[in-house]
Write a protein that binds this DNA or RNA. Sequence first.
RNA 1: GCGCGGGUGGCGAAACGGUAGACGCACUUGCCUUAGGAGCAAGCGGAGAAAUCCAUAGAGGUUCAAAUCCUCUCCCGCGCACCA
Length: 705
Amino acid sequence: MFGATYVVLAPEHPLVREITSPKSEIPNKDQIEKYINETKKKTERERSENKEKTGVRLEGISAINPATKEEIPIFIADYVLGSYGTGAIMAVPAHDERDHEFAKKFNLPIQYVIDPVTGDKQENPKHKNKIVAVVERGGELLTIRWPDELGGRLLIGGTANEEEDASITAEREIREETGYSDLELVEEAQETGHHSYFAFSKKTPTIAHCRMLHFRLKSDTRVPQKLEEDEQGKFSVEWVSKEQAVREIHDDLHQRAMERFFGIGCYTGDGVLARSGDFNGRANREAQRDIVNAIGGEMATQYRLRDWLVSRQRYWGCPIPIVYDPEGKPHAVPAEHLPWLLPTDVDFLPKADPPPAGKPINQAPLASSKELKERVTKIFGDGWTPEYDTLDTFVDSSWYFLRYLAPKDTHDFSDAALMKKWLPINRYSGGSEHTTMHVLYARFFMKALYDLALVPVDEPFTERYNRGLIMGPDGQKMSKSKGNVVNPDEFVEKYGADAVRLYLAFIGPYNEPRSYPWSLDGVASMRKFLDRVDRLFGKVNSGEISDSLNQSLARASVKVAEDGDRFKFNTSVAALMVLVNDLEALETIPKSALTQLAIMLAPFAPHLAEHLWTKLGGDGSSTALEVKSVHQQSWPAASITVASEAEVVVQVAGRKRGSLRLPREAGEAEVLAGALKIPAVTAALAGSEPKRVIYVPNKIINLVV
RNA sequence: GCGCGGGUGGCGAAACGGUAGACGCACUUGCCUUAGGAGCAAGCGGAGAAAUCCAUAGAGGUUCAAAUCCUCUCCCGCGCACCA
């Protein structure tokens, strides 16, 4: 507020209309009207494009800044939109990019009221007055190159003597550190940067209050440098390009100084208030409310809402139950004629012929339906016409999940008790281009319905998953024009639905939005895998499951289920493949092992799993006629028995040098003794004793040297 | 510009901070076969004869130990963009 140095009204603001009315005596009325007319020609979109700022001052009138009580000028400018908020702004050019640009162009005062604060806050800091000087010669900046551990490249910095003017400090520091003495002060920043840090040598928490100055070197005149003892020979003085300086200087305040003088110039970050009357020294965010109260204002939240044009000239979308009478007036279709269904006798293709000159034509697909026209004529009479536009599909996708709970209810849009039971939806999953918008619209619908007390929760989804995108075999997004479209139906035809389904599960992690090229060999390899599974079922025996087979089954059971729960279907399938590899090593396979495999396979290859399950006669607990589906079985119970021995990896200095098989209960001393017998370990130790031993039981031992 | 994701072999990928590359594709070699877009066996990140060394976009940092955590940079995808 204290930084507001002018006011801008949108050209279409009602107050502007008053000002330009015939009885107003504003001197540059013509100029203003001309600007307003020019603005009218632009769309909101054009006005929103980032280009050079334009505007006109309303001469003869001014505003009062309620915080500073100062008179400030009023402008109209098209970068302020009438449709947003109040259509009027206080402009703070020091802390807003657009205002800054405008102020620069119209030479308006820029008052900095937020001082940047950087670094980590320290307790009981020592305060120091410092400077940072940006010295420019041509396009180059004067820098000091310290060794990296002492700060690397920096601008000229220094500490002020008591009560000394910042420009005096700066000129002295430049002279003493670099020898350059013929300088011209271009600008001293109004604001002071505050940086908290630990002073290197003394370990003292410190806050530097830093003035920022911009100098131009007038000549290369140099005097001898005057360095402290500890500075001698430690750094070099270098001129570098602005780009290099920005890249290589990492100190926050030095960066800020360059941005201040060579960048946009305004400061959009947070900090402490300055030049703000009683509020000086307070954090800007936290003082906001108090400032607003002090000047008699009110805090208001401005929601960013724009009109949503929901009609589309498309077939896919709900038809709009509106009809027009012979005069063209719209009427709602009465309830007894609902639901208002989409016609099916529709021409989807765009009209080949251009419309006759000067004649509006309706190219919406619904306009080609004879049935829809007849329907309207029959119900409402001659001369009545239907609405041909349909609703944007976002309208229906914003609440279909509510309707799904009670799709046949002819009275209510959903079922209150069921909504209470099922909402909110646990997991929303969709493609990334779509989800941002959809989540926006669906949440908006939900919140509106919640305000109307029609739904029990105001947020529709608790978690959002982004799926990846399946690309063409060339790694490009599938498109007809690129000719890289893969039609899954062809693969279903050739390899079967199970193979395609399995491939889609295996192609990559479901919930990581990457792109997955459709590999032409991928589905074939899944079919091969399924063929291998099929062959296993020909090796059935009536024996018992061995211990090691039981372990294979148990590992698969746990892994497939766990990874399935976290939507990592690719590793679930991999775990099944590992199990199948294990089973293939056996001459014959106990029937009970195969039933377990069939159950685990069922979610991924439901058809083959059911086929094999039936062939085996189910789990044998019922007669063949009563066999229940594989999909009705419970998941195989896993009993992973802990092996009596564990493999312990031996590292020396964090690198693997070998491994040991030892009883699980072996203690650290025993593991260490075993480790020291490994030749590669003794070689890596090269005779020295391990300085420290990190032992993670039954997993790893690391000998630190 | 702002916001949200992501970057690991030739490819898709795997990896509670603890052996980088499981599983699969492609490829190589061999076996079997009248034949194979079938099957079986072995190999397969890079360098090296080997020991070993180097590798998870790049540069720093934290840690006994980093693909994984932190800082900065680059690249790719998506969304939004004069919204005060």
